[in-house]
Amino acid sequence: MSKNATILFVDDEERILRSLKVLFKSSYNVHITTNGNDALDIIKQNTVHVIVSDQRMPEMLGVDLLHQVKEYSPNTVRLLLTGYSELGAIVSSVNKGEIFRYIKKPWDNDNIQSVVHQAVRIGGELFNATPPSVPVSHSEKQKMGILVIDDDIEIYRMVKEIAEPQYRVTQGLTMESAINSITHQNDIAVLISELSLAGEDMSLALKMIKQHAPNLVILVLSKVQDADSLISLVNEGKIFRFLLKPVRKELLERSLNSSIQHYLSTQENPALLACEIVEKTQKGINSGLFKRITNLFS
């Protein structure tokens, strides 16, 4: 590992920082701070490849910090390290912070090391990649498809209103038909998916879809979920947005636009796809569902 990479840890508990510094100082330049504003100063003055921030801090919440980091230094890979998974915080870390991983306290040293190493590698690639000069033409845009995986006809209608005729909008009503569309239509850019479809949990399928096709942008639209399953959707499914139902049309439109924008930028600059790598799913790997989905992909 080169010591050229720089990482930044932010936590209001100094002991956490000390521990992390000891763990990482041999591999990287490590900056630490207990304060969000200082963190931003460090980001502005240095090339920071990876930032790992706590969520609950007195002056600035972790997601707000990461949101600003995204503005100032979009190539810095953002990780959230937190002790309590509060639903609202996770939702905004996805939507506002576009974080790479969510790490729970107490962490495991091997685990955090491998995640941070991976993030550093990606950060390095992002900083080195030069943005392409040729903009994507309009004709290419028109080919893009949006797949709505939701048996709620209202949502399908809403997406059609927003996206047609510029994009092709199709609907998947079962897990089988959805995966079938993805494997057979190579123009799909954005997935808008509910987490429960015809009484089945779509989470595992979404994670495997992302593994299969990392360039697909996933926008989840669902009722309240529990925090843990949402975290695993971030880490293992790299979902781009999470919207709570019932959703307002303007919000959906905005999120859809960002999703398409995100898709386009990864098309223009494939280096960005490095960020779309997901963790392999551990849970449910022996279940019948897993086998069923695997069969669908083969």
């Binding site: 002991r15 992390l20 609950r56 937190t82 002790g83 729970k104 306290k105 962490w107 040293n109």
Partner: peptide, 13 residues
């Protein structure tokens, strides 16, 4: 849970 997990985090590490 948050407050316990924070010290737990660095102690374990």
């Amino acid at each position: 849970v948050h407050e316990i997990n924070t010290p737990l985090g660095y102690v374990k590490s």
